[in-house]
Every structure is written in structure tokens, then in C-alpha cells.
Amino acid sequence: MTLARKGRWTTLVGLVLLAAVYVRALAFTPIERTQGPAQKIYYIHVPAAIWTETAMILVGLASIFFLFLKDARLDSFAEASAEVGTAFATIVLTTGPIWGKPIWGTWWTWDARLTSTLFLFFLYIGYLLLRGAVADPGARARYAAVLGICGMVLVPFIHFSVYLFRTLHPMPIILKPSAPSLPGSMLATWGFSFAVFTVLYVGFVMQRYALARARQEVPHA
């Protein structure tokens, strides 16, 4: 079985499990008293946000190793992870404002967390545009690697921005030094959703990596 085919099956499993996450989150997880049903957006927003940031960290790490080792497979992985990260970033930047409107009373505010996440999205778009704009494969990989490393450097700033600045965005309630502040049933739903987003990331990257490798072997594939 080819890598692309394995990726398709992994993605299919991920999408079926995503349906199970929806059923569990919407029908079998309690409604939070102060925020109401809108709080359940958390179960898709936060896993997507974690994978948006992790995908860029992996782009940066692959880029660093690529600049030292000149292994084209690392460049292909960075390309794949960046495209998948862009899809997850789109989820973050749409579900976040949909949560913000009923809870904050506004779709958007230019606070540090939101603005830096939007900047990360633009970095993802810029990374993909750069790859499409440079014809020479060697130069394309080098330029993209530099931009990927810049994106990786931005990620810790995004995560700690809620500590560094006064922001409207809530503090982390799971990824923090102390124990998660969610009740057990809500934490289980979140954990299930995070696991499914992980499966989807892996399935997507397997397919996109196979496509990038095919394009390296046949440039117009």
C-alpha cells in the first residue's frame, strides 16, 4: 500500500471519529453554566489551535534540519505540514470569532493572542505563496526553510502572549503548569477531540507528503 493510500485511510478513520466527537460533544457532554452551549466550541477550537502551532513548530524543525542535511524529504515534510497547518489555522480563525461574539460581545479584538494567531495564518499563506512563486527547487527550499524557521520562532510568543500582555483571550485551562481546570467529562471530550485532530493531522500530512515527493520526482505532477 502506498503512503498516499495509507494517508487516505487514516484521514477516513479520522473523519469517522470526528463524527463521534461531534456526537459526544453535542449530546453527551454537559453544558457549561455561564457560557451556555457556545462553550462547546472549545472542543474543536483548542485542538485545532494546538495543531496549528505544532504544525508550524514541525515546519521549523524540518527546515533547520533541511538547511544542514540538504535532504529533500525534510523540505517535502515542511511543505506538507505547512499546508495542513493552514487548514487548521482556518478552523481556529473562524471558530474563535464565532465563540467570541456571544461570549465577548464582539467577533474580533486586536489583542495579542488573536493578532499573533492571525499573523501566524498570514505566515502560513506567505510560506505557501513563496513555494509557488520560486521556480528553482533548491532556492525554493532554502527560502521556504528560512520563513518556516521564522514561523516556528513566533509560536512560543503566541502561546505565552496571554501571560505577557493584558488580553481578552482566556488563559490556558489545559496546557498550563498546574492541573487542567476542566471537569472530568469535559476533559474526556476534549482529550478525545484532540486525539482525533492528531489522527487527521497525520492522515493529511501523509497524503500531502506523498504528493510533494511525487512532484519532486516529476516536477509537473
Binding site: 494517508g7 461531534y22 453535542l26 478552523i91 471558530t95
Partner: peptide
Amino acid sequence: FPHNAGYMIAAYTVAAVILVAYALSLYRRT
């Protein structure tokens, strides 16, 4: 509870559309 289930449904719909559309895009390309 606050009556804001419409926002929840909108967010879940948007996320599903993005994920399925991207999965279909990858399927078509690979």
C-alpha cells in the same frame, strides 16, 4: 443557560466543512 446554541452549531458546521473540503482536495490531488 444563555441561548447561544446557534453559534455552537455554526462553529461545528464550519469546522466540518473545512476538514471535509480539505480531505476531498487531498483525495483529488493524490
